[in-house]
């Protein structure tokens, strides 16, 4: 049995290793977030571009360039609303100093508006998604890739009232 296990692992490992993609953007995590039932909250997702590389911003200057886009697949009790991308930096690169490209390099943050349906149950939910990007270095470009994204969102019944504030509704004491 042990021999079979060893053979299977030996077969499987190179298959996975051969397909391991070159990674130019990493997901660095999301700001902890809470959303009240029936309301929405903004979640900040942090990404890091590998040193020496850049990726197109969400609004590249040519339709031929592949924009950075985030797609989220929330569980049924949650909904993903608008996604806000940071403005890119206008930079030129050694391969064509005459042309400026709108890119992300180093760190960048994408904000996603998340909401919980009124019928959702309070608790912790995990949201999955992926960021699609196309990276280049100073002298070469690489095929588009996707980096998986995952973050937790806590759904609560009601936002906690801050100390010292007066209730606006006469029915709330």
């Amino acid at each position: 049995m042990k021999r079979i296990l060893f053979v299977l692992i030996a077969i499987a490992l190179p298959l996975f290793a051969a397909d391991s993609p070159r990674i130019y953007v990493s997901f660095e995590g999301a700001s902890p977030s809470t959303v009240t039932l029936g309301k929405s909250a903004e979640v900040e997702l942090h990404f890091k571009v590998k040193e020496g590389f850049h990726v197109n911003s969400n609004q590249p200057k040519s339709e031929l360039l592949i924009p950075t886009t985030l797609k989220l697949e929330p569980p049924t009790d949650l909904a993903a609303g608008s996604i806000t991308y940071p403005p890119g930096k206008d930079l030129s690169f050694p391969f064509d100093p005459s042309e400026k490209l709108n890119v992300y390099s180093d760190d960048f943050t994408v904000t996603a508006k998340m909401s919980a349906t009124k019928t959702a149950s309070p608790g912790n939910f995990t949201v999955h998604g992926q960021l699609r990007y196309q990276a280049c270095s100073d002298n070469a470009c690489y095929p588009p890739k996707s980096v998986p994204v995952q973050f937790d969102l806590q759904v609560v019944n009601q936002a906690k009232r801050a100390h010292g504030t007066t209730p606006q509704n006469p029915h709330i004491k």
Binding site: L64, L65, I66, F95, D96, L101, N139, C141, P143
Partner: peptide, 10 residues
Amino acid sequence: WATFCGPCKV
């Protein structure tokens, strides 16, 4: 090459 590749265009 590819149409999205700046260095290719050069």
